[in-house]
Every structure is written in structure tokens, then in C-alpha cells.
Design a protein around this nucleic acid. Structure first.
Lengths: 207, 207
DNA sequence: GTCTATACGAAGATAGAC
DNA sequence: GTCTATCTTCGTATAGAC
């Protein structure tokens, strides 16, 4: 269903950009509605609250990633032999990094926004994101545990969370530097480096 | 030099706790001064601004960590043979995790605060933290590059930033779960797991 | 149903009294 | 040094135009 309201859609676009650029708490609703060419009260009408607006932006950004992660995990498990750690990490990280391509011209903005939301320490914001990705997250964690039978379940969880965190830092540009465009190498190189780092980290001996 | 003003000291304590619990942006100056039993304008007088208060809290939290990181790196390099990756990672991560012990009863609060600040995506906040740790940070990065001669310099930097990021996520409790006390294992176990993960990750093949 | 105009209480910052 | 008063701006709530 395409957006019934053009105002609603413009507010989503503006919030996505401003939340990603300045963070959730530092972004004022007035800045969002001004950029969207709408009135302040419109966000309360369409999304209920500032938090409701955040949830809507997260959902729009993540639903296609969730779908592709499901699809590729289905492919991996349908192949007969259970997927290895390398395949799982590459699929998960690669799908996350493919946010940029998936959202067309809005791609870089979406990636920056998502990376920033995942790093957010506020429990309420973390909860909103967790709600949107928890189904597929559970499937990957189970598959990783199966691929690492010698590793205790809680250490798998520990490393899984490290993967989520590093992917988020990668997407928000923290891993490449303070300024977004200081990286001498391209973003694909960093993604490959992240996959290498994480795959090796997962196969570390148990502690 | 002990604090000239008891009000100033109480404001630092209160800000450390509230910034760590609710994040910088979500913490109101009124909540800080109320918890400190002082007037709202006292923080503006003593620290210039909310940002100045943050810088003061960061400095008080990190100066002993910086000092111990310097000291232990001196020990490591004075031993004759250049330090290996495992020693460097263990020293760096262990020193960061020792925040808890180093600040006595305030320890857990300081660790939560620091972890949260490092994860903060706001460039101004990141800059404040970077200012306080940059000298010793440079020394560790150089030592890591020397211990990994086969790795390109920018990939060392990439993995170094991953270490900083994961240490921060570890200290803010993101790696152990959404709620702070859900971890079935103790914090030392998680620190050991982090050291294992990072040491293995550093020695991954170049990409 | 969609949206705008506007008002309310609370927050951060500042100036000046003491 | 510390506090009071005040200014601007924030998120939210209400009422009504179309």
C-alpha cells in the first residue's frame, strides 16, 4: 500500500535524514516538520508521538532487509548441508550493508540512520529497533549456534551481539573515522574487512 | 588538587550517574542540579555549559585510565622484545574494564557513563572524548601496527576502531543484553570473551 | 480523514542581584 | 560564588478548517 498521504511520506523522509544526521534526541520535531513542509502537529496526528515517528522510520528502513535476510537464510538452509559461519556472517553483514543499494537515492541516508539507531544506548530506542528485527534475528542466532556446536550458547550470543554492534558502527561511519568521507578505501572494502574480522572472531576458541 | 567547591564535586557525581543512566541528551540540567542539591545556574557557572560539564566528567573518568594505559604500555615496551597483539589487546581492554575497580564505589557508574559516551554518535560528543584519550590512543595504534607488520596500516586502524567500539559496547552493557543485569555470567567472563574475540580478530588474514 | 493554527508546561541558557 | 528572574525553544495537546 503506497502512502495515502504525501505529508506523511515527506515527514518520514525528513525524519530519516535528520535522525541520521543529528541523532534522535538532538532532532527537534519542528526541524522535521519544517523540512517536510508540514505543521508540527502533523506528526502527532500521523504517528502519535516523536517515538511513534521513530518506529515508523525504523520499520520502513528495515522491512526489506528483514525480508532479504529471511530469503537468503532460507536459501542457505535449503542447500542440504547446514550453513557455515562464513556464509552466515557474509549473508547477515552483506544484507545489512546492502541497505545503501536497496533504498535507491535514499540509501546512504537510511544506512546512516539505522547505524545510529542501533548504537543508541537509550533502552526505549533499542527496544523499538529490537521489535522490528527480532524474528529474523532469532533465526540467525540459532543457525550460528548450530554452526558452532563446540561453543557455549551464551558465548555465541555474546559474539552475535558483537556482530550486531560492529555492523551498526560500520553503517554509522564510526569504524571508518570521525568524518564520513575520510575513508581512503571504498565502503565495499570496509564491508569485506568487517566480514573477515567477524568470521575469524566467531571461530575463536571458547573462553 | 581537590575540588575547591563541594557543589562542583557533587554536580560532577550527579552528572556522571545521570548521563550514564539516561544518556547525555536525555539528561536535563535540572535533574543534575536537583540530584546534587544545587541550583540550575551553578553548572553554567562552574562548567560554562552542559557540554563543558560533560567534558569535565569525561576527564575525571579517563585520566586514571590514560595514566595506567601509558604505564602498562611502557612496561610492555621496556621488556626488550616488542609486545605482541595479545598483550596489547589484553592491556588495553583490561585497563578499560578496570574502570570499575579504579573508581571505588563509583566504579560501575563510571564504566556505564564512559561506555555510553564512546557509543554516542553525536560528533561533538565524540570529539570531547577523543580529545581526552588521543595521546595514548596513538601509542597503542602504533604498537599494534608494529605487532602486525603484514597488515596494511589502514586495516590495523579499522580493527583498532572495532576494538574501541566493542569495548565501549561492552562497558555500556550492550553486549550482555538490553537490561544491565541479565547476564548469566559475570563481567570478568565477558571481558575475557572480549579479549579472546579481539585478539583473534586482529590476527585474521588481511583483506 | 487530513491537516493547520495555536496554546501549554518544561527544558537549557543568560543577565544581573546579592 | 550563588541564586533569582527571564528568554527562547522543546514535545505535546486541543480545536477547528477543509
Amino acid at each position: 500500500m503506497p502512502d495515502a498521504s504525501p505529508t506523511k511520506s515527506r515527514i518520514l523522509d525528513a525524519a530519516e535524514e535528520l535522525f541520521g544526521d543529528h541523532g534522535y534526541a538532538a532532532t527537534t520535531l519542528r526541524a522535521v516538520t519544517e523540512a517536510a513542509g508540514a505543521n508540527v502537529a502533523a506528526v502527532n496526528y500521523h504517528f502519535g508521538s516523536k517515538e511513534g515517528l521513530l518506529r515508523a522510520v525504523v520499520r520502513r528502513a528495515m522491512e526489506s532487509v528483514n525480508a532479504e535476510r529471511e530469503r537468503r537464510l532460507d536459501e542457505l538452509t535449503a542447500a542440504g548441508t547446514p550453513p557455515g559461519v562464513g556464509d552466515l556472517v557474509r549473508t547477515f553483514v552483506g544484507t545489512g550493508a546492502s541497505l545503501v543499494r536497496r533504498h535507491g537515492p535514499r540509501g546512504p541516508r537510511v544506512a546512516r540512520f539505522v547505524g545510529r539507531v542501533v548504537c543508541e544506548p537509550d533502552p526505549r530506542i533499542r527496544r523499538i529497533f529490537a521489535d522490528e528485527v527480532s524474528p529474523v534475528e532469532g533465526r540467525y542466532r540459532t543457525a550460528l549456534a548450530a554452526a558452532l556446536p563446540e561453543l557455549p550458547a551464551d558465548e555465541v550470543t555474546f559474539r552475535y551481539r558483537a556482530m550486531i554492534g560492529l555492523l551498526a558502527l560500520h553503517q554509522s561511519g564510526t569504524l571508518t573515522g570521525l568524518s564520513p568521507d575520510t575513508s581512503p578505501t571504498g565502503p565495499e572494502t570496509d564491508t569485506e574487512r568487517l566480514i573477515t574480522l567477524l568470521t575469524t572472531a566467531f571461530t575463536a576458541p571458547r573462553t
